[in-house]
Design a protein around this nucleic acid. Structure first.
Lengths: 221, 221
DNA sequence: TAGATTGTTAATCGATTAACAATC
DNA sequence: TAGATTGTTAATCGATTAACAATC
């Protein structure tokens, strides 16, 4: 039974949530470059947002700036880090060890942010026992027992589309709080489960749509 | 010099563009299941949108339904396919043949939609000559000459962050119209170049933010 | 102090939804 | 015909922006 007419939680607006990681990345860059100070105008300029939007976004969480000065880069970075929840460690499992799964398992960029892949599962018996990111690949029939035994914050689904909903149901009914979904299907989950989609094809189709829109506009000019 | 205060094109709203691939995927599923008919209400139900939104989205492009009946699945699918620009073939190149690059090159889901990777480039000389998705990996110093010689619709950037902007500049100054960016950096491009971001870390950080928001809400209840 | 820039309010802009006449 | 469902309009809701008093 799928959730219907679901209200987006009354919390922080989606747009703000989408921009938070972008601020985080940019602040990280600034800090690496040794910048100590940044204004909302500079932040906006660098990220193609308006200065007003930057200030408005940040003020959802507190007052991190100073009139006449702007923001201290490393202070703001610490704040954003906490806002994003990077002050703790997340245990993840990966289901599906195909090409995409392997790439996720060996992706370095979020390892050092506290996101740890604790176990990898696959149906393919040929893969079993192989290692990725320091994890042995385990048989998918063991998945349910695993999530019952080990608390898991995030389940990464990188299976073929046909298996995704089933895998999703298994982890959801065993209390996994959130899902990072790489398979190109819409997952049905109860309201309390968070799903973040990472749909390669959707993204590419958006691009091809906009390309065609552009070409059509160029033709008729 | 970065684009500033860029106006989103006056065309189709972003939200609609984001949902188009979702409709496409779902219609494909329905057709495979042998469904011939679907209403905006069903479409909405299956995808957690409202029926009104579905109708409103589709009516940006024409009148594809019929009062009292709904939409014919395969007709609507054809329409959406054309709207997305899937009635032609796209030539793509991939820069960066690391784990992620390899996964993209061997990703089956968009090959049969007309997106063809024509060439793969990498700096790593050890990889040169290797094959992925039927392409030989070529040295990145050859990239500029390549894009001058062969018209390219989409450049896929899957390099380490430090190289992304440079690679981006090369393809942009040689007329590549659009970029599908997998590296976690904000690319500076002229207004006429389209960029579609596929930021794994950003997506994961959005998830961790929402997880924390949820946990905070649960605590204080 | 004078200059700069915040945080926030009010005004604007855009997107979603509810409702319904049109009609298959 | 009666029932169903579209496409669209008007009403609502939410997000972005411009402007400015507060103040470092």
């Amino acid at each position: 039974m799928s959730a219907r007419g679901r209200k987006k939680d009354s919390g922080i607006p989606q747009g703000v949530v989408s921009r938070l990681p972008v601020y985080y990345r940019y602040l990280l860059e600034l800090e690496e470059q040794g910048e100590t100070r940044v204004s909302s105008a500079q932040l906006g300029e660098g990220l193609d947002f308006t200065a007003a939007q930057v200030r408005s976004d940040l003020s959802f969480f507190g007052s991190f700036g100073q009139q006449g000065y702007g923001y201290n880069v490393s202070d703001l970075l610490k704040q954003v880090r906490n806002i994003l929840g990077l002050n703790r460690v997340y245990s993840m499992i990966l289901i599906g060890a195909g090409n995409l799964g392997k790439a996720i398992a060996s992706y370095e960029n979020f390892k050092h942010m506290g996101f740890k892949i604790q176990a990898i599962f696959d149906v393919d018996t040929l893969l079993l026992g192989n290692h990725h990111a320091g994890c042995v690949i385990q048989p998918v029939w063991y998945l349910e027992e695993y999530v019952q035994k080990y608390p898991t914050d995030i389940a990464i689904i990188a299976t073929p589309s046909s298996a995704s909903q089933e895998v999703c149901d298994i982890v959801v009914r065993n209390g996994v709080a959130s899902i990072w979904n790489f398979s190109p299907v819409h997952l049905n989950v109860p309201d309390h489960v968070l799903v973040e989609h990472m749909h390669l094809t959707d993204s590419l189709l958006r691009l091809s749509f906009r390309l065609n829109e552009k070409w059509r506009a160029e033709e008729s000019s």
